[in-house]
Design a protein around this nucleic acid. Structure first.
Lengths: 245, 245
DNA sequence: CGCCATCTTGACACGTATCAACAGGCGTGG
DNA sequence: CCACGCCTGTTGATACGTGTCAAGATGGCG
């Protein structure tokens, strides 16, 4: 079927069934490299709330997010917390070339990860420029994202922040949303929030109460409908986008 | 003298006199590659305030910062602005692999740049994994920085933000500052702010007035002395660090 | 059915923005 | 050389948005 998979028989079984293999960094690897890689990888499931990486801990392994959402955050000594990134499948997770982690990572939803020890990946990166290129491009995307959120954190109002957050989730959970927007179709989206109110507050630099009030306001204005506190329906994506500032 | 420069005669004259050649991305290149590169590069000086990159403009060239400070910022449609990064020599400037710029760049101080057309650098990157690696590492450092500032923007008070900014400048303008801190020596630093109050405000997500008031407070508390509105003396770096939250 | 965590809502406080006036530095031109 | 005006920064009075504290509602789950 797939011309690129002509050597499919050599591709490790685990990788063959991997949903994100072609989208993530593994897309840079040929069958032989995948085989090398798969000797070291370990697929794990973690339930929501599990700490995946502790801040300041030694970096021992990296991972690919295969399913679910991972929350990256930083904390001040007195406990104030800021979520500095969200990673969706098929993102790569971990600070390449670092010695210590500079963020902590937590499973925001139930997640599946494909773990790989630090030395194994770094060896592979050295031998495969295409792999480094993929990782580089993801780093640049994350940098773009981080800078976008700096604008949100520094200059947007609470109302705009909450709308921007919903917009982020809508476009990342449901890829169709972004497509329909480009078609200028005012379509309905429905999705589950992968974060609690507390996490959303930590992401937006707000308090739980302010997030809740802004969601209520959006609900009263008919921009969103909230079902069971976790499921959100956006009847008209354009109206949500307008609220993002 | 320098074993690595055994082929110094082949190194282009411009590069030979370049102060940042070994520190910046050019450190990844051999004499032949430098020669190729130097055929396309152009060293330019720009005075403070000059727009170097316009947001949403097509990316035509990249640059190395050789001297001075460059300010990266994003703007909302209504004019609210956020500085999302500062680049010091020998940083690389520009969004590799991008089609459009997603930030604008302005010379914060008088700067010297080494410009290189987009296609020339991208060709060189393809041929030289070591160059991509250098650029990748810088991207990762910038990502770390951006996330650090997300914590500042989202969770620190105005007082902590201003102290953190001074700390950033102190450690980046005067490399000795960082060193002396590691030696746990409470030493004096003196430096010039590369940014106006307006820029500092845009960097910290505050207003000019709040920045001014916080600086006054730090001055009254003896944490800093301000000379001519631009030069700052920090008599005890540890006391400044304590204010960073 | 009832408990517990999560979320919402309300009253009030506080930090930062806003608006306005003023001060100082610096270059220009008389 | 001084006078003027402009730009940048400071300071003050007040307003507003968001945080804080407290109570209550809702929903998931045993």
């Amino acid at each position: 079927m797939d011309r690129l998979d002509i050597h499919n028989s050599e591709v490790p079984a685990l990788c063959r069934s991997c949903e994100v293999r072609h989208k993530g960094i593994c897309g840079a690897l040929d069958a032989a490299q995948l085989l090398t890689l798969s000797k070291h990888t370990q697929q794990v499931r973690q339930s929501a709330g599990t700490e995946l990486i502790a801040d300041d801990s030694e970096i021992r392994s990296y991972a690919n997010v295969m399913r679910g959402v991972v929350k990256l955050s930083k904390m001040l000594e007195d406990g104030r917390q800021q979520v500095v990134g969200l990673q969706f499948a098929p993102d790569f997770l971990g600070r390449l070339y670092g010695k210590q982690n500079t963020v902590s990572a937590e499973a925001a939803s139930d997640v599946e990860l494909c773990r790989i020890p630090k030395p194994a990946l770094e060896r592979l990166v050295q031998d495969c420029p295409e792999l480094e290129h993929k990782l580089h491009e993801q780093a640049l995307r994350e940098l773009d994202d981080a800078r976008g959120w700096m604008l949100t954190l520094g200059r947007k109002t609470a109302a705009e922040k909450v709308a921007s957050f919903l917009w982020l989730i809508a476009t990342h959970i449901d890829p169709a949303a972004e497509a329909s927007r480009q078609m200028e179709t005012a379509s309905t989206i429905k999705f589950d929030l992968p974060l609690s109110r507390a996490d959303i507050a930590d992401f937006l630099g707000l308090t739980i109460e302010t997030v809740s009030r802004q969601l209520t306001k959006l609900r009263r204005d008919g921009v969103i409908e909230v079902i069971n506190n976790r499921t959100v329906v956006v009847p008209d994506t354009e109206r949500l986008e307008l609220r993002c500032g």
